[in-house]
């Protein structure tokens, strides 16, 4: 804990040693929330480096800090100590450069805007010209199969379509890094399978780096190149699993022995990280 970033840190914050060459580099990062019931340690001693083009899932029971970790990467939470870099800069600078797209648990579409103008929202904020906005909206709506729903309002669409629109909104920024916080958690199994397949194709096509928070084991194994298993109280990394599944996999890969073996290892990790509780 010698290289702590404190509130009095110098104007040039220190970077983790692995900052060059990694999209995300995290070194000995901790975060403590001050609550009315006293301090709660949400993250403790996190070390993680994510390379370009990886699909990394953060999996763990609720309260393990997986969402908090994603929010730290997105500069939505400030770590108490430790080092973190995103695209070789501080999370704050990365956010200001709009170098990531964030997909929330819920679609969070603005109800007074049509689907098309919801997707155009970040582009308006970035100050892109109108023609460019229209082009990107069209392209990304095609990408998530929402063509024809441009003039609908969010509340006229199903939950799955809303979440697809929110993914299109994140993609419209054209970031190399996509941060997704349980984006399909509220959807039913069938819609979720379908969107998982689409997301995988999207990732294979665009070569983006994706960090994906989930609490579903099949989802994590199916989507990821690497699975980070986390355990709660305090939130920490318990295991990191390389999957090594072929890039052009379909949903039926979930019946194969390799897949089941990986799922078994993830489940073991979750159970071990949990065991001290009972």
């Amino acid at each position: 804990m010698s290289e702590q970033v404190t509130s009095q840190a110098a104007a040039r914050p220190q970077m983790p040693a692995s900052a060059t060459g990694s999209v995300i580099a995290i070194e000995d990062l901790s975060l403590t929330f001050q609550t009315a019931d006293g301090p709660v340690q949400a993250l403790s001693g996190i070390d993680l480096a994510i390379r370009r083009g990886e699909f990394v899932s953060l999996i763990g029971p609720s309260g393990c800090g997986k969402t908090t970790l994603l929010r730290v990467i997105a500069d939505l939470e400030q770590p108490t100590s430790g080092l973190i870099s995103v695209n070789g800069e501080t999370p704050d600078a990365a956010r200001r450069d709009r170098s990531y797209g964030y997909v929330f648990q819920a679609a969070a579409l603005y109800p007074w805007r049509t689907i098309a103008s919801n997707i155009a929202l970040p582009l308006e904020i970035m100050g892109l010209p109108k023609a460019e906005r229209a082009k990107r909206v069209k392209r990304n709506m095609e990408l998530v199969n929402l063509t024809g729903f441009e003039r609908k309002f969010p509340w006229q669409l199903s939950g799955g379509m809303q979440q697809r629109a929110s993914i299109a909104r994140a993609l419209a920024v054209e970031p190399d890094l996509l941060l997704m916080d349980e984006p399909f958690g509220a959807l039913d199994e069938i819609v979720r399978d379908h969107l998982n397949e689409q997301l995988l194709q999207l990732w294979a096509k665009t070569n983006k780096t994706i960090v994906f928070v989930t609490h579903s084991i099949p989802e994590a194994v199916f989507l990821s190149t690497r699975i980070v298993v986390m355990s709660p109280r305090p939130g920490r990394i318990y295991d990191v699993i390389e999957t090594g599944l072929p890039k052009d996999r379909g949903l039926d890969i979930r019946e194969t022995p390799e897949f089941l073996a990986l799922a078994h290892r993830v489940r073991e990790g979750l159970r071990a990280g949990h065991s001290y509780e009972d």
Binding site: Y102, Q105, V173
Partner: peptide, 21 residues
């Protein structure tokens, strides 16, 4: 809502932008 505000923050929107939009 909190999520809607966070969204504006991820876009690095200015105070005026998140007020108007």
């Amino acid at each position: 809502g909190g999520m809607e505000r966070d969204l504006m923050r991820t876009y690095a929107a200015t105070h005026a932008q998140s007020l108007v939009k």
